[in-house]
């Protein structure tokens, strides 16, 4: 067991995959000479050389598309986008090409590719660099979408993502690269599509993912202080969504709170709310409650940004009001 950061966990997973399989290579903007905008691939160029650590032009459409082609041709590319906001530039390739090509070819073609991208607000990067488009990408049927909130999941999910034969969007919470937690020394993987019950409790089920899961841990303490025992679920995967784990939990708690640090409107939690209502509404004793960041472009100013971003107080207040606690 050792305590490592999410950044270190990602480095371990990538390094391991590169050592194990010649077909794995990494490409992206400034991942080689520069070492990566968030330093995840620092030192990789020296170790693996320019054939496998490919610096790209600032040309997201072209190198994401080339990654898809390389995957179709039998390689296993790991592509770094400097921000998930930049996925917009490559959306046609990600959605129309990576997401649809298998279906359109009647299953003849697969795209074993990982796209890593920092996601989320909280580091004062303003409107264009703080968004959370993993929620949009989770709508595409041919693409898997995951997002870790701790080092164990970062390592286990990345191992699975690289081994997977489908395009996987690997959203990395920008606020959490330096966040530390324990990982075992033995090899393990985290299955893509399995949620994690972070903490068991009987009173309220609270679901989130990524940076939101970190916020849940803080709000749990505040809830316990007023005598409420929450069950916390970290989705880990936005496509597929582990409805079974959520439903099992609400069968016990009969209450569901959905927390997103992305903008509230049109996010993944709206989808989960509707689905739980359809699939398991009879288990609920009260309304499904959503907490999300405010529906504005992300502001630069620190106090404005913090006001927009979901925090543990928002969760606490919403629960108090909604359930009359």
């Amino acid at each position: 067991m050792s305590e490592i950061t999410i950044r270190e966990a990602l480095k371990i997973a990538l390094n391991e995959a590169m050592e194990k399989d010649e077909k794995v290579f990494i490409m992206g903007e400034d991942i080689g000479e520069y070492g990566g905008a968030y330093a995840v691939t620092d030192g990789f160029l020296k170790k693996f050389g320019p054939k496998r650590i490919k610096d790209t032009p600032i040309s997201e459409q072209a190198f994401v598309g080339a990654g898809i082609g390389a995957a179709v041709g039998g390689l296993r590319p790991v592509i770094e986008l400097m921000s998930i906001s930049f996925s917009l530039v490559a959306f046609d390739q990600i959605v129309n090409m990576a997401g649809n090509i298998r279906y359109m070819s009647g299953g003849q073609i697969s795209v074993p590719m990982v796209i890593r991208a920092p996601t989320g607000a909280g580091v004062q990067l303003a409107a264009t660099h703080s968004q959370s488009f993993e929620t949009w990408l989770a709508e595409v049927p041919g693409i898997k979408v995951v997002c870790p909130s701790n080092s164990y999941d970062a390592l286990g999910l990345m191992r699975s993502a690289i081994n997977d034969n489908n395009p996987v969007i690997f959203a990395e919470p920008a606020l959490l690269y330096g966040s530390k937690s324990n990982v075992p020394d033995e090899y393990f993987e985290v299955n893509l599509g399995d949620a994690n019950v972070m903490k068991e409790g009987d009173d309220i089920t609270i679901v989130s993912y990524g940076y939101g899961s970190k916020v849940l841990s803080d709000s749990a303490k505040k809830l316990e202080a007023i005598g409420v025992k929450p069950e916390l679920i970290d989705l880990r995967s936005l496509n597929p969504i582990d409805y079974q784990t959520i439903i099992q939990s609400i069968q016990k708690t009969n209450r569901l709170v959905l927390v997103d640090t992305a903008r509230k409107t049109g996010g993944i939690m709206a989808e989960i709310s509707a689905n739980i209502n359809e699939k398991a509404g009879e288990w609920l004793d009260g309304p499904i409650v959503r907490v999300g960041s405010k529906d504005v472009p992300w502001p630069y100013n620190k106090s404005l940004e913090q006001e927009v971003l979901t925090d543990s107080n928002n969760i606490l207040e919403t629960i108090k009001i909604s359930y009359g606690i």
Partner: peptide
């Protein structure tokens, strides 16, 4: 949209 796909196949070659 097919252009970078082709570039990627060429990259695999």
């Amino acid at each position: 949209g097919q252009l970078p796909l082709a570039a990627g196949l060429a990259l695999s070659q």
